[in-house]
Design a protein around this nucleic acid. Structure first.
Lengths: 350, 350
DNA sequence: TAACATTACTATAACGTTTGCGTGTTGATA
DNA sequence: TATCAACACGCAAACGTTATAGTAATGTTA
């Protein structure tokens, strides 16, 4: 295996010491201009570049942050990564991605793989299984080892760390308010089981909006989908069936709020098949502004989550913590940053 | 800053040497069972875990691979990452992601940031700008430094490295053949400018299919879109306009092959607006099986690229090269692996 | 001219591991 | 009772850096 150029080689060939080479390359005033020039020229010739690993070892920091997400084939997470990358790169950090695949053990393994010095801190959105189990030991341990940790989107109150979330409740409320203002009188919600925090919060927003308008919630109109199989084919069949039943049993439903864009698109599809005209007979609003929302027919009105902002905010918080730790600064109390949502109106509402 | 547990600490507290600790933890026969037990117990107590960075430095390998892609908000690349992650993790590797954002300089910067020892090898799909410039110096340099490199999807013949591609020509041919077999007689193609290799090759497949069926290509039916702004809003306006013109000027077009799913979905949208019934009046086939294809109305027949397979194959090739390099094995000639495509038939064809 | 700066370097330790080799202490053998 | 394995461990170098503390060879000052 060919060895890369090192300080040692440069030193030997230039017949000076390693320290001289190191200092010369850094324009140290201890070294004569003459030597500096010689060293630099030779270093360039041999295409010398410092070994990052050695630096990491020496400096005890890697300039790398780890992001662990449940799934990468998912527009929202992808946006977040983009935001993280952007901010991180601008600060000279690299980003290493771990996929939990919604599995608890994968999440743990991935974190362990990285928590041994490979990264300076974590940005995490919990795996579904972790939310179900409510087993947060690996987070606690990470924190105990003083590895900074920032959670986003799928967060949990028990863990004392910085968090970046969206105001799910408020977003949902806005969506449902909008539906009501646009004339919808009977509004259903397509949501997830309650252990998914965002599903629970969005359902809460839905209920609040109804309450504020003096509308009594109807149990039948609240469809909680077990998203074990989200984005898997047969999962959608179940969803379709439930939407069909809903529209069959409650023919006067004229508004649907879905807690993600996929549910919304599926609902629109079923409704269209059943002869509904959107938005005239039925108005639909989703959550998350992804590819589907933009290109569905009709295009989907949706609550934008600003994933990229979440990502860069998370990266910012994390890097602050890293600095705090490295420079032994006093610890600031943990923050929870709420990224504001907003409604993007498109073809699925009047 | 709290320091993590190291061998040195264990050694001091157990009053043995560092080497003894190290060996004990590795069950070395040089160390008495008694000591081994003591060391292990104490290590566990202090939650010792070896510092990966130190290991990387010592072993001169990082067990990390870098993947550089043009855009992460893109279903196909996301699938590839997933495949890479899966295979890499199974071999004990981590994955570090760099985003070129379709920019040449970003690509170069990202590679340089990682090529200084942070990773053992690269998996890359070229940025659009790099393809346009045809400036491959950074690849050549990487190869010169004997850092293994595997390219996928957007590849270029000039670089002597392993590659993983899809048989774009064949895939396109299958798509167009299918359209013809299903009764389409006048088929248009929505493709990219020629510098995008995949666009060029898919156009080639389109032409070959026509030729094999004795159909003369018509210049007007070949729409080459400048995808500078792919996935940006105003880009789509241009695309819509072109499709509209196409269908206006050639009312007998009854088949469209699009080189990606977005073009296909946009075409369907325009056609539907103009009163076409899909698939009866017009059949459409896309390329890449993403979210849009699955949830468009009608659902889109498309050529699946098997992004995940590409990813894991790329990772496999790369890790082989890394082993080859690390163990100073004889160098195998570079391979180009072709992942076979297949047509997924859905609602947009008869 | 002795004392002291200044200049331009070099040596060394440290970051956290691993590993080949050296070594002191046993107990067995001749 | 010398001799020699076997055992159990320690030493030191190495991976590639950087930073601190020397140290020669000059030049300056009183």
């Amino acid at each position: 295996m060919k060895k890369r150029t090192t300080l040692k080689q440069l030193a030997r060939e230039l017949d000076v010491s390693i320290s001289t080479v190191s200092k010369a390359l850094k324009n140290s005033p201890e070294i004569s201009q003459d030597t500096i020039d010689r060293v630099k020229a030779f270093a360039k010739l041999l295409n010398y570049r410092p070994n990052n690993i050695a630096l990491s070892l020496k400096n005890r920091k890697t300039k790398t942050i780890g992001i662990i997400i449940p799934d990468i084939v998912h527009h929202f997470f992808t946006k977040v990564i983009k935001g993280v990358e952007k901010y991180a790169n601008s600060k000279g950090y690299n980003v290493i991605v771990g996929l939990s695949n919604e599995s608890f053990s994968n999440e743990v393994i991935n974190m362990e793989m990285l928590a041994n010095g490979s990264i300076d801190g974590f940005i995490i959105s919990m795996a579904r299984e972790t939310m179900q189990r409510q087993d947060y030991q690996h987070y606690t341990e990470t924190l105990n080892e003083e590895i900074p940790l920032v959670m986003f989107d799928r967060v949990v109150a028990e863990i004392p760390c910085d968090k970046v979330i969206v105001d799910d409740t408020k977003g949902a409320e806005i969506a449902v308010n909008t539906l009501i203002n646009k004339g919808a009188t009977k509004i259903a919600i397509l949501t997830t089981k309650d252990y998914v925090s965002v599903g629970r919060l969005r359902t809460k927003g839905y209920l609040e909006a109804l309450k504020n308008h003096g509308i009594n919630p109807i149990r039948d109109l609240i469809i909680k989908i077990d998203d074990e199989l989200l984005y898997e084919e047969d999962h959608l069949d179940v969803l379709e069936k439930q939407v069909r039943e809903l529209l069959l049993n409650h023919t006067d439903v004229n508004g649907i709020f879905a807690v993600n864009e996929l549910y919304a698109v599926v609902a629109m599809k079923v409704a269209k098949e059943m002869g509904y005209e959107i938005p005239n007979d039925l108005q639909v609003i989703g959550f998350t502004d992804g590819m589907l929302s933009k290109h569905a027919t009709p295009t989907l009105s949706t609550i934008s989550q600003h994933g990229e902002s979440m990502g860069s905010k998370a990266a910012e918080l994390l890097i602050q913590r890293i600095d705090e730790r490295v420079n032994d600064l006093p610890k600031e109390p943990t923050k929870t940053v709420v990224i504001s949502t907003n409604l993007i109106q498109r073809g699925s509402t009047k």
